[in-house]
Amino acid sequence: MQNASTSTIRRWEWWTRLAKRLQGAGLWVELTRNLASRDVETRYKHSLLGLYWAIINPLVTAAIFGFVFGVIFHVSTKPIPYVVFYLGGLTFWNFFANGVMSAVGSVSGNAALLAKIYFPRIVLPTAAVLARFIDFLFSLGVLVVFILLYRVPVHWTSLWIPGILMIQMFFTLGIGYMVAALNVLYRDVTQLMGLLLMVWLYFSPVMYRLSGHPQSLQIILLINPVGAMIELERNVIFTGHVLHPEYLWVAIAWTGFVFLGGIALFKRVEPLFAEVM
């Protein structure tokens, strides 16, 4: 009888704890949302062109690369025009690279806020990445316009894009947590990430197509989770079939590791924030 009542009490405690956690999580989500929109607002607040910068940046880059590779070097991406092909890769790459670069300084750049109030610090890099997701949505609009302008056929497999984007989001968040925490301890991380992302870009199939290269090189490039995701995103939009679908699972596995590892690292370094800053 006593056992039964103890078990009921434990169950009740469990439900109460769960309710409190959910309530807490709701507040964190609200805080993350507010910080993300504040980030977007302050970024474009005193600029003349405002949110248009989110469109101008990919447009200018695509125009330059389209001219250099498409016109001067005659890189063939037939049947897709090179500008559309390149923009297809660049849009998704920019979300990752900008997300990571925003997350790097998200904690160290908010020292004043951290000193004033207590909130889970992990909210800061999360909000930084989410803010870049808003920019990404504008860039995606540009990609859609170019697809329509060049009359490139789009396959129904594009419906997979939200799913792949979700994986990319978690991967970006994971790397974001890692670099945000490490940047508090070592400010070199900002410089290092700029350099690393440049190398990473060339090792990802953003400005070149994967098919046509030797098989072993293709596989080396696909082991890179961001490369695999960009290739998948472009494939589902433009070709309707995926050449190496098994690498989606490789990317998912690495995403799981990077996301959980990122949280673990952030939590490990978090107690040192007050000391260092």
């Binding site: 098989q215 072993s216 596989i219 082991i223 190496h244 098994e246 690498y247 699972w249 490789v250 596995a253 690495w254 799981g256 590791f257 959980l260 590892g261 949280i263 673990a264 939590k267 490990r268």
Partner: peptide, 26 residues
């Protein structure tokens, strides 16, 4: 801690999935 333990499991999953996929595609 809890997250790090799960991260270890996923790290193993990532390495082994990569090796399996590479062997398969080669």
């Amino acid at each position: 801690d809890r997250f790090a333990r799960w991260a270890w499991v996923w790290a193993y999953g990532a390495v082994v999935t990569t090796l399996a996929a590479v062997r398969y595609s080669l």
